[in-house]
Amino acid sequence: MLLIYCPYCKQYRDEEEFSYAGEAHIKRPQNPLAMSDESWGNYLFFRKNPSDVHHEMWSHSSGCRQFFNVTRDMITYEIKETYCISESPKIEKYKK
């Protein structure tokens, strides 16, 4: 069970109040008409699926309904940080 910090409500709330919204920082294509089938496929379906640190979007759907980003460990599920969509993550990757 995750306890997620909502950066808008400034509170730790139960996982059940939130919905998962997939990988964060995906950029919309600038010029859709000029794109090949391959780059469309990549944009629509191909996601990062790392086994260490993942940046993902969550929505506080049963709370303030804002979207925000989470950096989470994919093995321990530990939440490293939550931040607003306009911001960049502080934790990029594990230092080995």
Partner: peptide, 13 residues
């Protein structure tokens, strides 16, 4: 579970 993970365990709810 609604979210990604490699932990071989899921959420209680």
């Amino acid at each position: 579970d609604s979210y990604n993970g490699y932990g071989q365990r899921g959420s209680f709810h």
